[in-house]
């Protein structure tokens, strides 16, 4: 296996959890809800995903458990912000704190246990192709799903009526409400979807990336996912570009260090953040007015009048 091929495979693995979580959050924010609890939902997904896989021996069931855990936690968030009209920022932060603590409790019994990592696709001829074989046809299910997810979200947002309604709710909940759309119901579905995606992104870590569970193993990836959504200016294509760019620079800086290039490692560690922010800001500027801006109702609590 060539070095470049190995690097690309590492990059895809490093980017996938970010992409999964960020894609879900993008839909949530497009519906006008700001859920800062991504980190909490991811780590819950990691704990429950690992537990599910360890108990059943199936990566698929583990992934479903991760999705369910993310959904369950996001339901708490929905009950607070949609049901009780609580401030979304405060509720989201509380969700992260809750998730980190609760996942440690749930996962405590599984620390030190081992599972079989997620199986990788194997197609007789295709996977054996030089260079592109393993990259295109030798990944695990999470990777293919994350790509399909982003394409699906793009199609949903821009090519379906339901997606148009969701964007309308995010841009002006009062207008959407006046037109008779069930704003809170739509937002509830979006929040649940985002929770499921974050849970799956978290579950990817113990099921495929590093096949064991340790409390706090998401190590801030939920926050990076949140930042990616903002810098992608809420557009799925840019989100994918941002996630892969972040993953690429993260892996490249490790390789650069191993080559002994002599660049200060503190700068190298900051590089993924810098590069991603700069590139996405430049894309947004170049597109000018065509670039999407924040959903106008983002983070604003909606209480339907009677």
């Amino acid at each position: 296996m060539g070095l470049l091929e190995a690097i690309i495979i590492s990059v895809i693995a490093a980017s996938t959890p970010l992409l999964l979580a960020a894609a879900g959050e993008l839909v949530v924010e497009r519906s006008g809800v700001l859920n800062l609890g991504t980190e909490g939902m991811m780590i819950m997904g990691a704990a429950c995903g690992f537990a599910g896989c360890w108990l059943t021996g199936s990566t698929f069931i583990g992934a479903l458990c991760g999705i369910a855990a993310g959904c369950a936690l996001s339901l708490v968030f929905a009950a607070l912000t949609l049901g009780l009209a609580v401030n979304q920022v405060a509720a989201g932060l509380a969700l992260t704190i809750l998730g980190v603590g609760l996942s440690g409790l749930i996962g405590a019994g599984f620390v030190g246990e081992k599972i079989t990592p997620a199986p990788h696709l194997y197609l007789p001829v295709l996977t054996g192709l030089p260079f592109i074989g393993k990259i295109l046809f030798g990944q695990d299910g999470f990777v293919y799903f994350s790509v399909a997810l982003v394409i699906g979200i793009w199609w949903f947002l821009y090519r379906t009526r339901a997606g148009l309604v969701l964007r309308a709710v995010g841009d002006s909940h009062t207008s959407a409400h006046a037109l008779g759309y069930p704003v809170l119901k739509i937002r509830l579905l979006a929040v649940l979807f985002g929770g499921g995606c974050a849970g799956l992104g978290g579950a990817f870590l113990p099921l495929a990336y590093t096949p064991f569970f340790i409390p706090g193993m998401t190590a801030g990836r939920g926050w990076i996912a949140l930042a990616l959504v903002v810098f992608s200016s809420w557009m799925p294509g840019r989100l994918a570009a941002g996630a892969y760019l972040f993953g690429a620079v993260t892996i490249m800086q490790l390789h650069a260090q191993a080559f002994g290039l002599g660049i200060p490692s503190q700068l190298m560690t900051a590089l993924p953040y810098l590069a991603t922010v700069i590139v996405l800001v430049l894309i947004s500027r170049a597109r000018g007015s065509a670039g999407s801006v924040a959903p106008a109702s983002l983070g604003i609590v909606f209480v339907p009048d009677r």
Binding site: L3, A6, I7, S10, A14, P17, L205, Y209, T210, F212, I214, G216, M217, A219, G220, R221, T250, I251, L254, H255, Q257, A258, F259, S265, Q266, M268, T269
Partner: peptide
């Protein structure tokens, strides 16, 4: 390879992969 963290399983794994690849 300096990873500038004491604890980040994902990043530690990435660093190990980079070393193995080299």
């Amino acid at each position: 390879i300096w990873v500038n963290t004491w604890f980040d399983p994902g990043k530690e794994a990435d660093a190990a992969k980079a070393l193995a690849d080299q």
